[in-house]
């Protein structure tokens, strides 16, 4: 279960001036500018079995709410209770290294995002197989196209089913055939994970994959 109670998230406003140490000593008062209030009084309980869709305009706080729900950002105030086994895919390309080969990138991303403990050679082969990149396993990522890189990431991120899956926008990578494979795999994961949360502008998609929808407006949940 995920539970947010009276959660506020303020982003400290470090203006470019505030990044310089001289301003700490000489312009201290000038440095203090009001924080950006991103989330305001969020009360949200997400139970096992819920597939939650978050909709809202640009800047309404969807991505920030996902970051709080995944434990990436601490709330400024309020109580946050999150799932331990959460996989948040907020930027699918984050962490890929161009000078490493596909195998090392899989190992690296797995370690960073804690997807599968003790990932072995067979797991790596399965991930490469799903991504249709077996024959490129020894090539550095700089020789990959953007689509190939995303296929590799997608294949790793969806290799295990987490208790809670959080997505910032629907993941759809590769060509037409691979996209179909992605949709099937993602649907399988969504149906077997206990909690699924997605933020998107696409309300049709949200209505199709989610059983509960909330709308954010200016950092608040619309009633």
């Amino acid at each position: 279960m995920i539970n947010l109670k009276n959660v506020y998230l303020n982003y400290p406003n470090y203006s470019s001036d505030g990044r310089y140490i001289k301003n700490v000593f000489f312009n201290y008062k000038k440095k203090i500018i009001k924080d950006y209030k991103i989330l305001k009084n969020i009360n949200l309980t997400i139970n096992k079995g819920e597939k939650l869709g978050i909709v809202g305009n640009n800047g309404s706080g969807k991505s920030s709410l996902l970051k709080v729900l995944s434990g990436l950002l601490p709330a400024t105030s309020g109580t946050v209770q999150i799932e331990k086994n959460t996989l948040a895919i907020l930027n699918i390309a984050a962490g890929l290294e161009d000078y490493l080969d596909a195998k090392d990138n899989i190992f690296s991303l797995n370690l960073i995002n804690d997807i599968k403990p003790n990932l072995n050679e067979l797991d790596i082969q399965n991930i490469l197989k799903f991504a249709e990149l077996e024959k490129y396993s020894k090539q550095p990522l700089k020789t990959f196209s953007d689509g190939m890189k995303l296929r590799l990431s997608f294949s790793l991120y969806t290799y295990q089913t987490p208790k809670c899956l959080i997505l910032d926008e629907w993941l759809s990578v590769g060509d037409k055939n691979f996209k179909e494979k992605c949709v099937k795999k993602l649907n399988d994961i969504i149906s077997s994970s206990e909690i699924f949360i997605i933020a998107s502008h696409d309300e049709d998609l949200i209505n199709r994959v989610c059983n509960r929808v909330i709308r954010l407006n200016d950092g608040m949940i619309e009633q």
């Binding site: 950002l73 948040a88 984050a94 962490g95 995002n113």
Partner: peptide, 9 residues
């Protein structure tokens, strides 16, 4: 820096 985009390590 980019490693902190999906998870607080």
């Amino acid at each position: 820096e980019n490693l902190y985009q999906n998870k607080n390590i």
